[in-house]
Design a protein around this nucleic acid. Structure first.
Lengths: 107, 107
DNA sequence: ATCTTTTGTTACATTTCGTAACTAAATATA
DNA sequence: TATATTTAGTTACGAAATGTAACAAAAGAT
């Protein structure tokens, strides 16, 4: 469990996308820049985790964070070019899910 | 944090793909049917988690499990049609990672 | 002085993960 | 017979991530 010849970029990418909520947040932000509270309202994620994920995504340069000193404060998150470049990925996942995922009682 | 209008199929799909290791396992199995020990050798995942993930993926009908009563026993995992249908997704992730993911010391 | 709203943060219980040791099956070897 | 070998797991247990709910800061409105 140490060094592997698996493409390191793919592995790192999957490590990011394969983290709880990241994919859904990106998909949501593909609709356009949104404030914290709006993202939170659209996804089944708690404030704590949303803060955490957005911070990580900012560090990975997937999103930018803009603070507007209004009252009350407005904080908007927007995908970077790197983040927007994930649109084809999300599209393929959508296509796959539409065709293959079946819903049960628990969904 | 209850009912959301987000496409339920997409959400369920992301819940699967957005789980640690699942993406890498699928990507590995896209190379062809493989036995347990081989998958384990190719990925930085422990036996415990690999067992767990493969069991979940079997329940989701992403993989099939075949036991060959050889000596010692051989257990092979193979993607189902549903699993193979994720190839375009993996391809898009690869493309994105190749173009956008940058490696640091920790990767 | 108190209320309201947004964007977080903190505390704490629950769940998942990672590591290493152990087990089962079934044959080969001493 | 007793021991060793190999694969495919399982178990125990500490570490890390997650979920829930209560709290905090800022700053204008009442």
């Amino acid at each position: 469990m140490n060094d592997f010849q698996l493409c390191p970029k793919f592995e790192k990418g999957m490590k990011m996308l394969g983290k709880r909520w990241t994919g859904l947040i990106i998909n949501q932000l593909l609709l356009g820049p949104q404030r914290f509270s709006h993202i939170k309202a659209e996804l089944p994620i708690s404030g704590k985790l949303l803060t955490e994920r957005l911070k990580e995504m900012e560090e990975e340069e997937l999103v930018t964070r803009k603070v507007y000193a209004e009252v009350p404060v407005r904080v908007e998150y927007e995908l970077t070019e790197k983040g927007k470049a994930l649109k084809p990925v999300m599209k393929e996942i959508s296509k796959w899910a539409e065709e293959w995922v079946e819903l049960t009682e628990e969904n």
